[in-house]
Structure formats: structure tokens, C-alpha cells
């Protein structure tokens, strides 16, 4: 009789949830604790905004002049970096938990990507809406720019959405790759990954310097503008995202 029980489970392949449902369940794990995923990023987001607002107001109050140069504000960079770090952290914390709940690494990775893409969509919408608010209110009446910055918050609606989301994707992909590397090889893996990135950067700088190409690099940046740079960054984004998948697939869930 007991043997029949085992045989049933062997042949009965229909009863498990489909791929989509399994991946969605991983997304739900990431959102299970509402505070870390729903509240914390936006608290940080709000805090950065509040700090900027205080600075703008204090300058505006003392000079009584419209602010200049805030369109080069890099304040929103912090939010992107935050999400990169959050991705590493989330993977470190939930990978072994999810595997403990009999999740495959494949479903886990895809679910994690989806969970963060949702964050990316929210972030993109928020940043874009706020950039328009800054446009319409003439920078809260002070000429202040945080979201309507030169990198992600100017140009047409499509350009703004693309810039915000592209920058998010790039940061998240780096975070996901780092997270996979950390989960698989721990800190030594991250040192090695950092070394590889450093070598690539140094090689780029060396080649550019040796071939006297800095003027053309500068010209290229001016020509493609921020949105073009972000578009080109989609290539390393895809490479990092795919590499993270394959790194994680062989990661053991050990102590």
C-alpha cells in the first residue's frame, strides 16, 4: 500500500503549479515582509528628497534667487545604488530560505528578477511623474531639480521612462550578478568579481589613453547624451543578468 503512495507521486506530474505560478510565488516571498520591499525603498527615496528640499529652501531663503545647476543633481543616483545593494542583500537573505522551501534555483532567479522589475516599474513611474511636477511647478517655485535632472528626467516622456528604467535595470543587473556570485562563492567571489571589473576599467582607460582617444570618448558622450549612454549600458546589463543566472544555477545552499 505504501508502495502505491510512492508510485502515485512518481507518475502524477500534473498536480504541481506551472512555471509562471512557481516564479510568482518567489516574487511573493520577496514581498512577504512588506516593510523591506514596499516601505523601506520609498522611505529612503523620501528622505533623500526631504534632505534636498531643506537645502533648496535654505539656499532660496538666503539668496532669494532661483537655484542654478540643480539639473545636474545626482541625488537620484542614490536610489539606483540602493536598489543594486538591495538586490545583493535580498539574494543573500532569501536564496537559502527559498531553496529550503524546495524552490529550484531557476525559479528563484527568475522570481527575484521579476520582483525587482516590479520595483523598477514603480520607481520609473514615480521618478517620471515627479520630474514633470518639477517642470510644471518650475522646480517648486525655486528652480530646483532632483527628478528633472539631466540624466533621467529631461526630454520626451518616452526618453524619461526609458532613462529611468534603463538605469534601474543596469544597477539591478549588477546587483543580481554580485548577489549570485556572493551566494555561490561568498566574499572571495565578490573580490574576484571586483578585480575583474577593475581590470576591465583599467584596460579601457589604458587603451583610451595610449591611443589618445579621450577627445573622441568625450565627443561620444556629448553625441549620445545620457539616454544614449543608458542604451549602450543595456549590453552589460544583459550580460550581467544572464551571467548571474548561470552563476546561481550551480550555487550550493550550504552554510
Amino acid at each position: 500500500m505504501t508502495a502505491v503512495t510512492a508510485a502515485d507521486s512518481l507518475t502524477d506530474r500534473r498536480s504541481i503549479p506551472g512555471t509562471g505560478a512557481r516564479i510568482w510565488n518567489v516574487v511573493r516571498v520577496h514581498y512577504a515582509n512588506r516593510f523591506t520591499m514596499f516601505a523601506l525603498p520609498w522611505i529612503i527615496f523620501g528622505f533623500i528628497f526631504a534632505v534636498n528640499l531643506v537645502i533648496w529652501i535654505s539656499i532660496f531663503a538666503s539668496t532669494h534667487e532661483q537655484l542654478t545647476g540643480t539639473q545636474w543633481s545626482g541625488a537620484t543616483f542614490y536610489i539606483y545604488v540602493y536598489f543594486a545593494v538591495a538586490a545583493v542583500q535580498a539574494m543573500n537573505l532569501t536564496f537559502r530560505f527559498a531553496l529550503g522551501l524546495s524552490v529550484t534555483r531557476r525559479d528563484y532567479y527568475l522570481g527575484t528578477v521579476l520582483a525587482f522589475l516590479i520595483q523598477g516599474v514603480i520607481l520609473t513611474l514615480l521618478c517620471t511623474i515627479l520630474s514633470y511636477i518639477e517642470d510644471w511647478t518650475n522646480g517648486y517655485g525655486m528652480g530646483a531639480h532632483m527628478f528633472s535632472n539631466m540624466y533621467f528626467g529631461t526630454g520626451s516622456l518616452g526618453v524619461r521612462l526609458f532613462s529611468c528604467f534603463g538605469a534601474f535595470l543596469f544597477c539591478f543587473a549588477l546587483g543580481a550578478l554580485s548577489g549570485s556570485v556572493f551566494v555561490r562563492w561568498r566574499a572571495n567571489g565578490l573580490y574576484a568579481l571586483g578585480a575583474i571589473v577593475a581590470v576591465l576599467a583599467v584596460a579601457f582607460i589604458a587603451i583610451t589613453t595610449l591611443t589618445d582617444s579621450w577627445p573622441s570618448v568625450g565627443a561620444w558622450f556629448l553625441q549620445v547624451r545620457a539616454v544614449g549612454v543608458i542604451a549602450w549600458f543595456l549590453i552589460p546589463t544583459v550580460i550581467a543578468g544572464v551571467a548571474g543566472f548561470f552563476v546561481l544555477r550551480k550555487a550550493a545552499a550550504r552554510e
Binding site: 507521486s9 506530474r13 504541481i16 503549479p17 512555471t19 512557481r22 511573493r28 516571498v29 512577504a32 515582509n33 516593510f35 523591506t36 537573505l93 532569501t94 537559502r96 530560505f97 529550503g100 522551501l101 524546495s102 524552490v103 529550484t104 534555483r105 531557476r106 525559479d107 544555477r249 552554510e255
Partner: peptide, 30 residues
Amino acid sequence: ENAHVLSRISFIKESQKYPDEFKPKHVFTC
């Protein structure tokens, strides 16, 4: 990496790690 097999397995270990901010209720929700 076989979801058909793994979904029929429960593996409880002394060294199981949980997300830092989790409370037991989150585990029982998941």
C-alpha cells in the same frame, strides 16, 4: 533543479536560514 521532484520534498535542517526581517508568521505565510 527538478521542480516536479522538489515540490514533493520538505527538507528541514538545523542550519536553515531565514530572511533577517522575517517573523515566524512570514514563514508560515510563505
